[in-house]
Design a protein around this nucleic acid. Structure first.
Lengths: 216, 216
DNA sequence: CGGTTGTTTGAACTGATTCAATCTGTGTGG
DNA sequence: CCACACAGATTGAATCAGTTCAAACAACCG
């Protein structure tokens, strides 16, 4: 999967800014908070969310190596860590300087953006067109590939609580629990705490309508 | 709403390419079709869709003045017109030339992209967190503003069939029909064929959880 | 006129929510 | 070390929102 090359990672590490620990307990940035900062995730996992009445919908995830650029206007989404994370906070100006100095980064940045919209479309298909078990299966597949490709055959420790999964896939945590149970009783996965072993990766993909090409 | 200034529109009209009529009857571009073209909508309305088994999910709309850039890899979405449309088809190279020549366009382009992701997030909230009537109400509000702001107080002729609305909001066309009927019997809208008159714009927004700021 | 596409309505069914209770593991302070 | 609090996982039962199927109806077009 499109990880950064070590060279590109090195360049990005040259970005001036401060390192901040982000706790999953509370929102890191509230919606509508004006902020002129570039956020790069170094470790962990951030969620972009929107609240809608009492409900919360997670609209995007940012894994280690990914980033969040500031919108021109105050963003409508908030940011909250899924797990304890470490981010680099820089300014849009410093980021632009880096982007202009290293033209290869522009290409990387462009493809990243494209990938994120592609994932966004996939999530829309998920919440809009698939039933509950497919949605959960799909997220499991996506998570396996986005965390660590090599572990896909083995087992993945989910960063999510079942409530997170509900907020991503648009259903109640209770139902997520039942769907996980059903996937297990179908023999597609085995669970040990929050770790998921994939017993039938092919069938799990089929159930979830998961076709990895959208991740590129 | 962010229409192009007449000057910017003029620049874009200078983009070399061919004009094509797009019929809503059949797909204009199938998913996975490799194509190295920039599409600018001159008249009408296009949908980007993904199919998922028998179902179709519309993941984005492109109104007149908006465009579709080619992804680096073959796109997973297809393109189909909602109504009879007219598009300008150009190449990514010609588009880049234009973008480099007129730096103001870059800013426009950037804001467009930002707006589209913002709308994508809102659609995720819609399909993931709102109930059926809210989803329909929300789409009505959005459509009123995206088609013609001035007509919002008056009435809007929807470009959509009820099936389209179902494919956008993730529900069956039968249920869309019932929700439209309910909105009407609640006295929020009045329908004449496909034209919708807004009798209580404020309450309609409230029902739909619609806050126009995401459209910028 | 017939064919096609879209809208409307009813009835039966089912998937998912909600509410509530229980259970488990983990961390904290006494 | 135990008691307690807390967050998350699990389960059951009742309810409800939305789907599906089927049929009728309306509008439009060649």
């Amino acid at each position: 999967m499109p990880r950064l090359s070590s060279r590109q990672a090195e360049i990005l590490n040259g970005l001036p800014g401060r390192i901040v620990q982000v706790s999953p307990r509370r929102a890191f940035r509230e919606p509508l908070e004006l902020r002129d900062e570039v956020i790069l995730v170094r470790k962990g996992l951030l969620s972009l969310y929107r609240t809608c009445g009492a409900k919360r919908q997670i609209v995007a995830l940012r894994y280690a190596g990914e980033g969040i650029l500031p919108p021109a206007l105050p963003p409508l989404f908030g940011i909250q860590a899924i797990v304890l994370s470490e981010v680099l906070i820089s300014t849009i100006d410093d980021f632009d300087v880096l982007l202009n100095r290293h033209s290869e980064l522009q290409e990387v940045y462009r493809r990243r953006t494209e990938r994120h919209t592609s994932i966004g479309y996939e999530w829309l298909v998920n919440t809009g067109s698939r039933d509950a078990i497919a949605r959960v299966a799909h997220l499991l597949c996506e998570t396996a590939l986005r965390t660590d490709a090599e572990s896909a055959g083995e087992g993945v420790t989910l960063p999510f609580t079942q409530q997170h999964i509900g907020q991503i896939t648009g259903q109640s945590s209770v139902n997520v629990n039942r769907m996980m149970g059903e996937l297990e009783s179908l023999g597609l996965i085995r669970r040990e705490g929050r770790t998921v072993h994939f017993l039938d990766w092919v069938e799990l993909q089929r159930i979830g309508g998961f076709q990895p090409n959208y991740l590129r």
